[in-house]
Write a protein that binds this DNA or RNA. Sequence first.
DNA 1: TATCTACTTTACGTTAACGTCAAGTAGATC
DNA 2: GATCTACTTGACGTTAACGTAAAGTAGATA
Lengths: 117, 117
Amino acid sequence: MADTWTITELANEQGVTARAIRFYEDQGLISPLRDGRNRVYANRDRVRLKLILRGKRIGLSLAEIRDIINLYDTPEGEQRQTELLRKLIRERRAQLMAQQQDIAVMLHELDNLEARL
Amino acid sequence: MADTWTITELANEQGVTARAIRFYEDQGLISPLRDGRNRVYANRDRVRLKLILRGKRIGLSLAEIRDIINLYDTPEGEQRQTELLRKLIRERRAQLMAQQQDIAVMLHELDNLEARL
DNA sequence: TATCTACTTTACGTTAACGTCAAGTAGATC
DNA sequence: GATCTACTTGACGTTAACGTAAAGTAGATA
């Protein structure tokens, strides 16, 4: 298993276009190293991309995903920030759980629908 | 409890703009009756709007929501269509369950994050 | 009867998230 | 050394989902 990827390798693997990945970089969501002009993606970039795509699949905007990434990237032990971070995490968790609920309701309705057939 | 609503009443209640509701109508997602030129929303329209907004909250596009609505609106007992319907329902259910999974992973990551604080 | 309020339609504007050329470069291959 | 391949950086185009006037109407109220 390689430990670095080119942009097209990563794009193919993750099922997105290279253009999309470059766009995420423009938006400050991912920052690969360079080999000359060319982008080189390490595993942490790959993990980051997966996080982005997971966020997209559940309907988060890139701005919201950036907020979540910022939670991850905040230096540890910054006491002044900790309380704020906890709050943001709680809010995000509440939103995700509400989404779970919405999906549960929809699944239930699909069950009813199928039962009617 | 009233059994009909004006567009602004419904908009305020559901936390969206009247413009958005009219847009959903343009897209064929909802079809209220009229009192002269004015739209009159009955309870089934209200339920329909809730379905639309629930879909939006979990990141579905209006086109996808329309597909789901079409599942609901298909006349019962159309034997020829039944098998296709079952298939569409199964696919949609699979997608929703995948989304549940994505959300579960994110919730887990938030837990880890909070634990680090 | 004039004004106010809540609706209507029409139409152009806006933002997010890329798609789609165009033009250039750098390394490998014929 | 020319051609091929995989990258690069602009820059303009596109679609979805509304926002935002503009201009008109119909019923209630001063």
